[in-house]
C-alpha cells in the first residue's frame, strides 16, 4: 500500500509498476502480486532500498529474481543505485499473494 503522505509516493508507484515486470519463473506471476516485496525506500539519496523476501529461503530462482529487480529499477531510476535487503521475517506465505495473483494462479 502506498501512502499519499509519503514524500516519495510517486517514486514508489513508479517502482511498483517497474517491479511488476519481474516474473517469478516458477509460478509465472510478477513479484508484486506474489507479495515478495515488503517495502521500497527512497529516503537515501541516489539509492533505492528494496526490502523483500522469497517464497522459500533457498529458492533456486532467487538469484534470477534479484537480478530482475536490479534490472527494472536500473531502467526506471538510472540515477539511483539499487540495494536489496532480503529478509525472512515475516516469512512469505500464500496470504501475501494479491487478488490479481490469486486469480492468475487459480487459487
Amino acid at each position: 500500500m502506498i501512502s499519499l503522505t509519503n514524500p516519495y509516493a510517486q517514486e514508489e508507484l513508479k517502482a511498483n509498476i517497474a517491479l511488476m515486470e519481474v516474473i517469478d519463473p516458477e509460478l509465472n506471476i510478477n513479484i508484486i502480486d506474489m507479495g515478495l516485496v515488503y517495502g521500497i525506500d527512497f529516503s537515501e539519496p541516489q539509492t533505492i532500498t528494496v526490502t523483500m523476501t522469497l517464497s522459500t529461503p533457498h529458492c533456486p530462482m532467487g538469484d534470477a529474481i534479484e537480478q530482475g529487480v536490479m534490472n527494472v529499477l536500473a531502467t526506471a531510476f538510472p540515477k539511483r543505485q539499487t540495494k536489496i535487503n532480503l529478509v525472512w521475517d515475516p516469512e512469505w506465505s500464500i496470504d501475501n499473494i494479491s487478488a490479481a495473483g490469486r486469480e492468475q494462479l487459480g487459487l
Binding site: P25, A64, N71, T75
Partner: peptide, 15 residues
C-alpha cells in the same frame, strides 16, 4: 528447465 533457464535468461529477467 530451471537450471537451463537460469543460465540462459537470468541476467535478462526484467529487461
Amino acid at each position: 528447465p530451471f537450471i537451463v533457464w537460469n543460465s540462459r535468461y537470468k541476467t535478462l529477467n526484467g529487461k
